[in-house]
């Protein structure tokens, strides 16, 4: 993402180029055609079990269930890929964002499936960042959802958001006291569908951080992490500040 040179130039960041068009077509093909086909496989496996389950033996029924769970997995992978494509392609509309509010809302959606758990969440007053609202919300949602997920085994989960400001950028940090990971493998964190934990330990297909990286790249920013196994992880999102005359709003 370029910073707009002046107000009238804001549209320049949103002009679709060939890559955007291709990604859009790919997204549409995935969500219409492939997604429909995978869903069909899943449903047919259920219908076969319902209607003809009695005619299969135990092994046959187990295979039919495996077929169904493979289709479910394919569906989750497709959802991840579609999500990634959306954030890689949709036009960005940068503006000064109310980071504290967006962080609180993102925590709400990220922790919706863990309401029964005790999670201490701290959001101080955060500086505004220059970014696209949907993209910022998505990036924080993904990091907070990971923090919620990887603290599942902690008696009390602590999730914190903070910010550091320098001349050139604002760095948001999302920290937790969860499972962490080995820093040795940290260069692989952001690869689509790359996972650091076994699925039996923590669910998920590994699209979240790839989406976060894509969002940060498109904002001309950076993402990095710091973690220790069983002690927690901290992710850093660096948003460049626009030159003052660009963002005089």
């Amino acid at each position: 993402m370029k910073m707009p040179a002046d107000e009238s130039d804001v549209g320049a960041v949103a002009v679709p180029d060939r890559r955007d068009e291709d990604l859009k077509l790919l997204g549409s093909a995935l969500s219409h055609d492939l997604d429909g086909s995978v869903r069909g496989v899943k449903s047919l496996s259920t219908i076969i079990l319902n209607r003809f389950g009695a005619q299969l033996d135990d092994e046959g029924r187990a295979m039919m269930r495996l077929l169904g769970s493979e289709a479910e997995r394919a569906n989750r992978l497709l959802d991840g890929l579609t999500d990634w494509l959306t954030y890689a392609q949709q036009p960005l509309t940068p503006a000064w964002q109310d980071t504290s509010r967006i962080a609180r809302e993102a925590f709400g959606t990220a922790s919706a499936s863990a309401r029964e758990r005790k999670i201490e969440f701290e959001v101080p007053s955060l500086p505004r960042v220059w970014s696209d609202e949907l993209a910022l919300r998505k990036a924080l949602h993904e990091l907070l959802a990971n923090a919620v997920k990887f603290t599942a085994r902690q008696a009390t989960a602590h999730v914190t958001i903070a910010a550091q400001e320098s001349d050139g950028e604002i760095v948001l940090t999302v920290g937790d006291n969860g499972a962490g990971f080995e820093m040795e493998h940290s260069n692989q964190l952001y690869r689509l569908f790359r996972r650091m934990h076994r699925k039996q330990e923590f669910p998920g297909e590994g699209a979240g951080l790839a989406i976060v990286r894509e969002i940060m790249q498109r904002h001309g920013g950076r993402v990095w992490a710091d973690a220790r196994v069983d002690e927690g992880a901290t992710f850093y999102l660096a948003f460049p500040k626009p030159a003052e005359e660009d963002a005089a709003t």
């Binding site: 429909g36 869903r39 899943k42 259920t46 319902n50």
Partner: peptide, 9 residues
């Protein structure tokens, strides 16, 4: 949006 699961459908 067509649900993924047959039972949901």
């Amino acid at each position: 949006t067509k649900p993924v699961e047959f039972e949901d459908m």
